[in-house]
Design a protein around this nucleic acid. Structure first.
Lengths: 339, 339
DNA sequence: CTGAAAGCGCTTACAG
DNA sequence: CTGAAAGCGCTTACAG
């Protein structure tokens, strides 16, 4: 039963392979009689066209491929949900290609494109350099970037700086000037951007920046976007001689860790995360919302369009982040007033 | 630059396609001179072998494919992390195939196998029926099941009932007899199993079972394994005339929702979840740990072994779940003593 | 060390 | 309505 080919079916059904192919692909103009005969044999022998042979012959794979550096990440998971939902409206299968952290990321990404795995690609948080994106562009493959800006390709992203600004403004407006920042790894692009946003917002407000308030945990997993990293980061902040009176985290998942550190030490300062992953609503975490689900579905739509017409001019979709206030920032009264 | 083939390279470099193939595949016995010449041209033209053509010619894809019904799920994410880690020790690429919820799941799964996408498959939580697994078995492809039991294939799973038993024993031993159960959708296999474990444990302890205490939320997303579902479930429990004095949740993520419902209503009863996803530790949720990461890596190891020798007899790896006590069960004093 | 040729399993004009 | 044949882009014995 294993591994029967179109030849086996043709032989057993007493027809040509062309006929088998037509039946299996539901082409028109096949007599009902042969159709049934072929289908019966195909079912008996467990036949269905091999993807690789079919893809080669057709020069079309019917696959949309998501390319990601790290799979186990909440942001990614929720974006993916949006992709999944949207893709179910189209006739494509979804494949995810996990690029391994070890060797050079760009060469891996480049090879994926060269190898022509799919008809179109969704790159999530790959954070490539402009010259690298230019190179990719030259392969002339439909690609949509998510969480990454590049004007010569379709991309959907969120205005990071603006989001952070909102968080900062909120703190400052509430008279909280000494604001800690728990960052992700500085080597990660969004990590950098968020730090920059932090600095910029403070600078504009005329608040002096204390570099000691910008920390990250020691856990490098997931580029530092982890509970553990946030936990460690908050502990560093609280160990400071002059600890912050509020805190901004580069991601909700870090904030989860930070919250725990606070609880253990029995201190409470207002804290704002970044992302608005689903749990944040349930644990009362204030945050900057990125519309992850929508980002995924919009990106998929854009990609599908481009696959139909590669001549379209590149589109950017920049979402504005939104500050969501929950209980984690309602501690001001507690912290200042009541204590 | 886009889409050059081995013929283009051969022509431009003035060699045969066989030579190009050998150079690109790093075969031995190629003069340094031609090697360099070919490599130079290949680089200029951005050539790398097309995956589909190569796979067809070699009859080997070098791909391990993970097949999952629902991507955005914490259990899956953590299992995946283990898979990812282990796979980086081997020379395979990782592909994830997302089967769409809409049409018949089994026929989709069957087609994936028939289409020979990969050299080996990891099925996570597909929960197929025995006859279906028998059918899959007949295709004679290396498959390892995760979170699913079937004695004729390699599989790694956790003894669900035993886990639930532990939670129940803990409650009962602490004099908590009226135990609520927030279940996932009853149509899901693990959902069922967990309800069964609940009933069994109570029956063995001679505690009368009140069916009103077994609830699920109205949110059907992710088979009911969601925050929202847990939130709704807990609200139903607390709306009961005679609400439970403790609660068991079919997953941690549901417990997160349940916790919120309790907080809003300002009630606290001991609660135990299931899975031990990373955040649970940070929010103090007691739970039954499934070693997800390890399950992923062990399953991958088993699969790789089987890909080397399809004659191996099927192995089962059954993990014992472990009760992890955290603050969410330390409320007994509060609930009973102090109030 | 290198090339000509067969073959991998399909699809799809082209004929009939 | 059906088949013979070329072609998709590779790999790999086989010869030399």
């Amino acid at each position: 039963m294993a591994g029967s080919t179109i030849y086996d079916i043709a032989k057993k059904a007493g027809v040509s392979i062309a006929t088998v192919s037509r039946v299996v692909n539901k082409s028109e103009g096949i007599s009902e009689e042969t159709r049934e005969k072929v289908l019966k044999v195909a079912d008996e022998l467990g036949y269905y066209p091999q993807a690789y042979a079919q893809g080669l012959a057709r020069k079309k794979k019917n696959i949309i491929m998501v390319v990601v550096p790290v799979l186990s990440n909440y942001f990614f998971m929720e974006v993916l949900e949006g992709i999944q939902d949207e893709i179910s409206n189209h006739n494509y299968d979804l494949n995810i290609f996990n690029i391994q952290g070890k060797s050079d990321m760009f060469s891996q990404v480049e090879n994926i494109i060269k190898r022509q795995w799919a008809d179109g690609y969704l790159f999530i948080s790959t954070h490539l350099r402009t010259e690298q994106l230019n190179k990719l562009k030259s392969y002339d493959m439909p690609i949509t970037l998510i969480d990454e800006a590049y004007e010569d390709m379709d991309s959907v992203l969120v205005d990071n700086e603006k989001g952070i600004e909102q968080a900062m403004h909120y703190f400052l407006a509430n008279d909280l000037n000494r604001i800690g920042m728990i960052s992700a790894l500085k080597s990660s692009k969004p990590g950098q951007q968020r730090i920059q946003g932090y600095r910029k917002a403070l600078a504009e407000a005329g608040v002096e920046i204390d570099d000691k308030l910008i920390v990250t945990g020691d856990s490098m997993d997931r580029d530092g976007f982890s509970e553990k990293n946030g936990y460690e980061g908050m502990n560093k902040l609280l160990d400071l001689e002059n600890p912050p009176e509020a805190c901004f985290c580069a991601s909700d998942i870090q904030a989860v860790g930070a919250l725990k550190a606070m609880e253990e030490r029995n201190v409470k300062i207002p804290i704002i995360g970044y992302d608005d992953i689903t749990i944040s609503n349930y644990i009362g975490l204030s945050t900057i919302r990125q519309p992850m689900h929508e980002m995924g579905s919009i990106a998929t739509q854009m990609l599908v369009q481009r696959m139909q017409d590669q001549e379209l001019s590149p589109k950017q979709k920049v979402f504005s982040p939104e500050l969501i206030l929950r209980s984690s920032t309602q501690l001001k009264a507690l912290a200042k007033g009541e204590s």
